[in-house]
Design a binder for these strands. Structure first.
Lengths: 249, 249
DNA sequence: CAAAATTTGTCCGTATGTATC
DNA sequence: AGATACATACGGACAAATTTT
């Protein structure tokens, strides 16, 4: 059960690409660069680091996948936004791969989202103010309007949950919320697991806002649970379901 | 090689590497491969996908960074373990980059860990049984023994928190716990932010186990809070601290 | 508008290191 | 130890995208 830290059996020659990767990271750290700051060009990195262009490029691509670096074709290489894009891509792939047997991965994801929001009930309500109330109420109104017309409201839904977390001033929580939501939004349509009734979902969001406005912590937690309950029920009901017609060519 | 179809305006030709990346992912999905299953060799992928080695290699490196693919030098390419290694690397880098100004990133990380464990108090206690009690108590005993000798116990600490989450049967929660813990363990030593007193930490873990054994949900949540409180206090106290002597050459 | 300069993207050929039989 | 299969690394050439002149 060793954690994923150095493994040094027979001191093996470190791979060239790995060396370059680490040195680029050090370059950013030691120069205290910020997202958007320019990095040396490929050829400059080749000279500085004494590596071929192939090695440098592969290293840059790895860092690009982690959003530590951002590459713009014909323009240059820059420090990345350090987002959780890699988490989204990894979890999305995992969910799609496990989908054939069951929907366990997706259900686990929903559980985590629920734990985060329920566990943060007290601080969320503590920081709940009028401005936030108005913004959330407006989003819910949009949801209800769209639901009545038989339309969906993915954008409003995402904004709602992010806005709920915003006042906590914890960027990691906000980004995790967004990341988990993104995975869900990407995977669910591919499962053809039609979402719950839109009106029901809109009503659940309204209940969350109202509980928060009442400063009712247990009520808020219950409203969160009620919001996720139909999703979890639906996923658990589809366990074992297989759609052999997907993915298409 | 002139394009007989002049691509006009917004529809930009997708990059070769991106195409290859997607097709390798599709290859895994459509063939329902599992972690450890072998993938075609580089040259085979070049033929199948009609791309050069460079493009294939860069694509494979990206997938390797996400642990969707695993490359063993001189052996072959295989489906990866789909771990959260990319999350660990990304968060670690972010924490080290933000360290110059403050310890906000690390503090946010600790908050998330706390929310997860506190929010899961009820299900954890619901699934708490004798075997788990013995395992956790044994770990705590080791901690106390090591603390008395003035030693640390990172391995026992990591195992403790993973064991706490184990019975929930939610792999995502378990992996997130491990990932967050890893980031913390990697970053903290680099900050020279000396950890709290080992005996105090061991005692906090014992309090958690005892509350769980009593089936005392609020007591468990309080014990979790008491466990993280000194860490958060310490991080907040160091806000703005800068150690110009790091990193070394 | 057009050409040039800069930078990343792609391809090829070759040589080397590594693991397995 | 040798042979084979595979990934790693290098260098050069040209294509594509972007900005500047």
């Amino acid at each position: 059960m060793a954690s994923n830290v150095p493994e040094q059996s027979p001191a093996r020659a470190p791979l060239r690409r790995q060396e370059v990767t680490e040195r680029i990271k050090s370059l950013i750290l030691q120069n205290r660069l910020a997202p958007g700051d320019p990095l040396p060009t490929e050829s400059e990195l080749c000279e500085t680091l004494g590596a071929s262009r192939s090695s440098v490029r592969e290293a840059v691509k790895v860092l690009s996948a982690l959003d530590i670096v951002e590459v713009r074709h014909g323009h240059g290489t820059y420090v990345g936004r350090l987002s959780l894009a890699a988490l989204v891509e990894g979890l999305t792939f995992r969910a799609m791969l496990s989908r054939h047997d069951d929907f366990a991965t997706l259900a686990e994801l929903v559980e985590v989202r629920q734990v985060l929001e329920r566990g943060l009930a007290a601080p969320i309500i503590g920081a709940f103010d009028d401005g936030q109330h108005r913004s959330l109420a407006a989003l819910v109104a949009e949801m209800e309007e769209l639901a009545e017309r038989g339309e969906t409201f993915v954008e409003q839904d995402r904004a709602f949950h992010l806005l709920l977390m915003g006042p906590l001033h914890n960027r990691l929580i906000t980004q995790l919320t967004g990341a988990f939501w993104d995975v869900h939004a990407i995977v669910v349509p591919m499962l053809e697991a039609s979402v719950a009734d839109a009106r029901e979902t809109a009503a659940a969001h309204r209940a969350i806002v109202e509980a928060a406005a009442r400063k009712d912590v247990p009520g808020f937690a219950d409203a969160i649970a009620a919001h996720y309950a139909p999703v979890l029920k639906h996923l658990n009901a589809k366990m074992g379901t297989v759609d052999p017609s997907w993915p298409p060519a």
